[in-house]
């Protein structure tokens, strides 16, 4: 495994209702062991996956949202959220979980993992990827 590829995981579905979001996150976590250049992208209803204060008690389905906070520990710190998707749902970045990572090169300074980008910027980011997995 000499070559490092750019992996992008596209998440465009709501966190509950279907299993795609949770099983996508499982791929991301397993994939982290392969030392690739990983990015995550949240578009459409996928932005709801990052909402803070998720509570699934009433629906009886596992709340997996705390797992996103662990991504920083797996060196996954490029989490792109589409601005237009937030706007269309009346959300801002303040409605999302505060996901951070620690920068080894800057004395473990804590930095934000979430970057809000426009769909035009996302298109450019997607263009740079080697492997795109959509869930």
């Amino acid at each position: 495994m000499s070559n490092v590829k750019k992996f992008m995981y596209i998440n465009n579905k709501a966190p509950y209702g279907t299993i795609y979001a949770w099983e996508s996150l499982e791929v991301v976590l397993i994939g982290a062991a392969f030392d690739q250049d990983v990015s995550l992208m949240f578009t459409g209803d996928g932005v709801y996956q990052l909402m803070k204060g998720q509570d699934t008690k009433e629906v009886g389905i596992k709340n997996f949202s705390p797992t996103y906070a662990a991504l920083g520990d797996y060196d996954i710190n490029k989490i792109y959220v589409e601005k237009e998707s937030l706007d269309a749902r009346g959300l801002t970045v303040d409605d999302l979980m505060h996901l951070v990572w620690e920068d080894e090169d800057e004395d473990w300074a804590e930095k934000d993992s979430i970057r809000v980008v426009t769909s035009a910027e996302l298109a450019e980011i997607l263009d740079q990827q080697d492997v795109v997995l959509s869930f």
Binding site: K13, V27, Q36, V132
Partner: peptide, 21 residues
């Protein structure tokens, strides 16, 4: 087998093509 097989396919192949919604 495990999910690593999917990541390996992404690394080893020229193209990874996903079929689904």
């Amino acid at each position: 087998s495990g999910l690593g097989q999917l990541i390996e396919a992404g690394i080893e192949c020229d193209r990874l093509v996903v079929f689904g919604d």
